[in-house]
């Protein structure tokens, strides 16, 4: 069921343009005439705006659809980037001996000890927000947890006799890492990817909510919720809070369920460190 929901979400995100065309509103199109009431308040769900409009008279449904695109693109690419970096660095730390290990392990400690949300905010204010930067920031602060686990597993695999056998055949470090160690990591890595996606989606929404993620006219679930919070607007326009919040919660829930089933299928005993 969670798979079906995710598939639905992907389809919605891919066909956002034709869908919005079908609904009849653009993602940033302001409907001053029918979207807001005479005293400037947004109108609720109805015939013209199926899920209501926001404070500028923009259609909530269309913005939700485009928000799905942002969440998926940022969430999935950040998760994949984080796992790639984590696997490479964790593999090197675990395999290339104590000197490399102590440097890389310290690096992971630094990243993990960093108040990352604060750092993300600082970086974005200095560099200026963009989708790419957001992906980079999320990936940068997520890889260390993966790296730590991959390092632990690599340290254990490194002592196996088949690694020694490969050495005795004359295999170099790179070949042993790719051919003998990496295949053992595929199962946990798959699990981490599926668990990191919801974490990255929430991370993205949080950054956008704090105003340092997706730049405002472009809709994202996070900045829609920020709009809703501004001036207590959600108190008079419940649809403005409810729909983006529901979209966000259902999406993370679906990915969490998917991650759980992937974990159960592949390795029931994987340590669970990414539960948030």
């Amino acid at each position: 069921m969670c798979g079906a929901f995710i598939l639905f979400l992907v389809l919605v995100a891919v066909f956002a343009d034709p869908l919005s065309h079908l609904i009849g509103w653009g993602p940033t199109q302001q409907d001053r005439a029918t979207g807001t009431t005479a005293d400037g308040l947004p109108v609720g769900p109805g015939r013209i705006h199926l899920l209501g409009a926001d404070q500028l008279g923009r259609d909530v449904l269309v913005r939700l659809i485009y928000g799905a695109r942002v969440s998926l693109v940022v969430g999935v690419s950040a998760a994949i980037a984080a796992v790639l970096i984590g696997v490479i660095i964790g593999l090197c730390a675990g395999f290339l001996g104590p000197a490399v290990d102590s440097v890389l392990a310290r690096l992971m400690d630094v990243v993990l000890a960093f108040p990352f949300l604060l750092f993300a905010i600082a970086l974005v204010t200095v560099v200026g927000p963009s989708e790419l930067l957001e992906i980079a920031v999320i990936a940068f602060f997520s890889w260390a947890a993966v790296g730590r686990i991959v390092r632990g597993q690599t340290l254990a695999i490194r002592e196996r006799e088949y690694v020694e056998a490969a050495r005795s055949l004359g295999a170099g470090n790179l070949r042993i890492m790719v051919v003998d160690v990496l295949p053992n990591l595929i199962a946990p890595v798959l699990v981490y990817v599926t668990l990191l996606i919801p974490i990255s989606i929430v991370f993205e929404a949080t950054l956008s909510f704090l105003g340092v993620g997706i730049i405002p006219p472009t809709p994202s679930w996070g900045n829609m919720l920020d709009d809703a919070q501004q001036g207590g607007l959600y108190q008079v326009a419940w649809w403005f809070l409810t729909f983006p919040a529901a979209a966000l919660v259902l999406t993370t829930l679906a990915f969490n369920l998917l991650g759980d089933s992937v974990r159960d299928a592949l390795d029931p005993r994987t340590e669970r460190l990414f539960a948030k």
């Binding site: 919070q229 919040a245 919660v249 993370t252 969490n256």
Partner: peptide, 18 residues
């Protein structure tokens, strides 16, 4: 546990406030 896990902090805060 699963639902709590899927609630971003700020969404929960807004809902509680509401």
């Amino acid at each position: 546990a699963l639902t709590g896990l899927s609630f971003p902090t700020f969404v929960l805060g807004l809902i509680l406030l509401f």
